[in-house]
Simulated scan of single mutants.
Amino acid sequence: MELFADRADAGAQLAERLRDAHDPVILALPRGGVAVAVPIARNLGAVLDVLVTRKIGYPPTPELGVGAIAEGGEPVFDLPLLHRLGMTTEDVADVVAQERQELARRVRAYRGDHPLPPVEGREVIVVDDGLATGGTARAALRAVATLKPAKVTLAVPVGARDTVRSMHEEADEVVVLLTPLDFRAVGQWYERFDQLSDTDVLRLLGRQT
């Protein structure tokens, strides 16, 4: 199975699969999703903006996500995982509060005072650079659903099979190029998978100050 050269290559390939989209709004999940979304928006002649999400980490091990939150939405928790950890949603209330603050900071950094583009009655394509557990994508899709779009498509280059399958419950359509059996991490399917900064996101969006 061939690797994507980088996120731009993955986005160009996804764009070919999204050509039937009708005047969509592209909402990319920062940071990596923005690099994938830029060639999609360019190829489709579509509006592009960010939809900011944050992982809700397990307090003793923050790298372990027990949920996620997207701007305009409510926290979405992995309740079975919380149960296995002997925790409730109230036990991570402080983490949720911290992530709300960071989410608000990033919204200001990426969009300033500008709101999300209007999506009511429009086709929306939510883009990320890959799906592992799918926590942030799930939070993003539920937040978008509250804005009453006509259709929501999730588009990612690569994802874990079980996660991709579960996303069909959250989106009207799911477009994924690779669902490898030996999926371990998103980055393993890219030849180049650099970490991106806020400055990189602003450059990709053409919003450098």
Rank of each mutant, 00 (worst) to 15 (best):
R19A: 14
T53K: 11
E2W: 08
I40V: 15
T136P: 10
H83M: 13
E120N: 13
M167G: 01
H114I: 08
E99M: 12
V119F: 09
D198Q: 12
S197G: 05
P115W: 15
L27K: 00
V36M: 07
V47R: 15
T88N: 14
E102S: 00
P115Q: 10
R161Y: 10
G72R: 12
P30R: 04
P157Y: 01
G72K: 05
G67W: 04
G130K: 01
L131K: 01
L14N: 06
R122M: 05
K151D: 01
T199S: 12
Q13A: 14
T146R: 15
T89Y: 10
D128W: 10
Q208F: 09
L18T: 08
E99C: 08
D20Q: 13
N43E: 15
P118W: 07
E120V: 12
W189I: 02
V174Q: 07
I125C: 02
R106S: 07
R111C: 02
V34I: 14
R192L: 03
G134Q: 10
A137W: 07
G67D: 02
T153Q: 01
D128P: 11
K55M: 04
I56G: 04
L27W: 07
E123Q: 15
L64H: 04
D172W: 12
T133M: 09
L177T: 02
V107M: 11
A21E: 05
A37R: 12
A35H: 11
Q188I: 00
D6G: 06
P62L: 14
D172I: 11
Y190H: 03
A160V: 04
V127M: 02
P180C: 06
G11W: 09
A143N: 09
V50G: 05
L85E: 01
L103S: 12
A171F: 11
F77R: 03
E63M: 00
V156K: 05
A104P: 07
Y58T: 07
V92Y: 05
R108K: 13
P62M: 13
L131N: 09
L48E: 06
V92E: 00
K55H: 07
G45W: 13
R106A: 06
H168K: 13
A41C: 04
P149H: 11
D49P: 13
Q188Y: 02
V176A: 06
P59F: 04
R100F: 12
P157L: 02
L202I: 01
E63P: 08
G33C: 10
V50I: 09
R207L: 00
E123R: 13
E173D: 07
A70N: 03
V119P: 06
L44P: 03
R100I: 04
E173P: 04
A8E: 08
V34H: 10
S197V: 04
P75D: 02
R111G: 04
L82F: 03
Y58A: 10
A10W: 03
P180M: 05
G159M: 00
I26M: 03
E102Y: 04
A132R: 00
G45E: 03
D49F: 11
R106D: 03
L44V: 08
M87N: 08
E99I: 12
Q188W: 02
V186E: 10
F193G: 14
H114M: 06
E16G: 14
E120R: 15
L27V: 01
A10P: 02
